[in-house]
Design a protein around this nucleic acid. Structure first.
Lengths: 262, 262
DNA sequence: TCCCAATGGATTCTTTTTAGACCAAGCTTG
DNA sequence: CAAGCTTGGTCTAAAAAGAATCCATTGGGA
């Protein structure tokens, strides 16, 4: 019997503020150049004192994520899109045996999210997704993928969250955030599963195209390919099969038909 | 443009501990009679000081949720399954316009969870689900439903979480917790949507039977009926239609065929 | 130009939380 | 029975966070 009790909060309050701002930058909800609300407004929104908020800002400024400028037209600005992992260290823990469950949950959740996104996405969403892909391609072209592996993974996370936001459903965004948080932990546990950058970019491009086409079957198929690839990578990285096979009803209809016919 | 910043934590640390313990009792992860770890272990697990933990326990004991007994064989015990709402007041906010999104997310998520649960549930899970149903029937028989409406809703929440736990996938449990947290807030906002107790019990009984049968199509159909009922109730309570119609791919295949045939 | 409003920067004082030690009660075991 | 362990109960000093105030800089508007 394990203890079901989790840490009640960040050890130091300002760390919670650091994490919250860092996560928003990491997930792409704040981008380089954006100006944050004033210290007073931020502190009020987060329900912490200004002194504590300032300590958080100082940490983020030291890390190069934020930049503060005094004066009437000054304020707090996002200085960099990239957030070092050290600033995040999520509170929730995940045992190694539960990593496969993250992939199973993605099977369950993400294809439907993508389909719903296809029904509700606006041009702005597509543009944002395309922009993320461009950034990844740029990293690849510059050969920085290995060096900045984490930067590449961060963009991957942003891509999936952005699809969730395209649904226009805040509950789904909330669920996706929960899922992605665990995914990032899982990636850390799984010995830095090597992302084959060109493959990821290719599959993401086809995912974007599929969502744009609003062809539900096509979305299901490309999502299946995406997740099947992740499952293979996990199996190779850990040298063991998935704890459970993917259940039939989580596979696309077309594949079932194909296999049943064969 | 709204502020995307949330409160960083409970105003007072001990409130976080209160909420965490209260939520576990409310969700049925702790039941009456259960003994909690010692104050020292609990405080260590939650990463707070013993003094703070004790303050939380005092609040919960005053509320009748916990009972503390000194001595070597003593400890902290769950005194009651029921948790007053006042102890929970979740931090996250939900605007009225986002309530319909909770139902949409359930459409997306819960049918698949139930299907996966059917593949992995153990007898212990079925027994627990049946026990929750018994408790609801008992409330109904005693005519206490209106009086203890919240008690009834709490059992409803426990039912759905228990299905998620039957999947044996901790990530899915985590997602379901996120979803149910928003559902409880939504219920509060939606003018206390009146739960028609006999209907809920009936549909839950059929949900349990469907999961037991492991017939995926049957699960989808009963889940559809369940959620359609919730949608109707929401529409009547708020006197307006769903912001969006339920997309086709979230409806069970059988219904699509039926409608297309008609 | 000159004043004002808004910004970050810094100080002070109070409350909360922490960390640790110590006590009293009561079961368990030798 | 008696020693020893674990339990909750209590207290204290130090660290952290909160709340409030004042300062310095800067840009925009009267």
């Amino acid at each position: 019997m394990e203890l079901p009790f989790k840490p009640v909060g960040p050890r130091r309050t300002f760390e919670g503020a650091v994490e919250q701002i860092a996560e928003q930058v990491r997930l792409g909800e704040l981008s380089a150049g954006d100006r944050l609300p004033s210290e007073r407004d931020l502190a009020a929104a987060m329900q912490i004192s200004r002194a504590t908020l300032r300590e958080a800002v100082r940490v983020l400024a030291d890390a190069g994520v934020l930049e503060v400028k005094p004066g009437s037209a000054g304020g707090i600005f996002v200085a960099s899109d990239y957030v070092p992992l050290e600033l995040l260290r999520s509170k929730s823990d995940l045992r190694l045996g539960e990593v496969a469950g993250v992939l199973e949950a993605r099977r369950l959740f993400e294809p439907r999210v993508a389909q719903l996104a296809a029904l509700n996405a606006r041009e702005e969403d597509f543009a944002h997704l395309a922009r993320i892909l461009e950034a990844q391609k740029k990293l690849l072209a510059e050969g920085d993928v290995l060096e900045h592996e984490d930067r590449f993974l961060q963009l991957d996370t942003q891509f999936h969250l952005r699809i969730a936001r395209a649904t226009g459903n805040s509950t789904i965004v909330s669920l996706m955030r929960t899922l992605l948080r665990r995914l990032e932990i899982a990636r850390d546990l799984a010995l830095h599963e090597p992302p084959v950058a060109p493959w990821v970019i290719d599959i993401h491009e086809r995912t974007l195209a599929a969502i744009r086409s609003a062809d539900h079957q096509r979305i299901e198929e490309v999502m299946d390919e995406h997740l099947a690839g992740m499952e293979r990578a996990w199996q190779q990285a850990t040298d063991r099969a998935l704890v459970r096979p993917v259940p039939d009803f989580l596979r696309p209809v077309a594949e079932r038909a194909r296999r049943d016919g064969a």
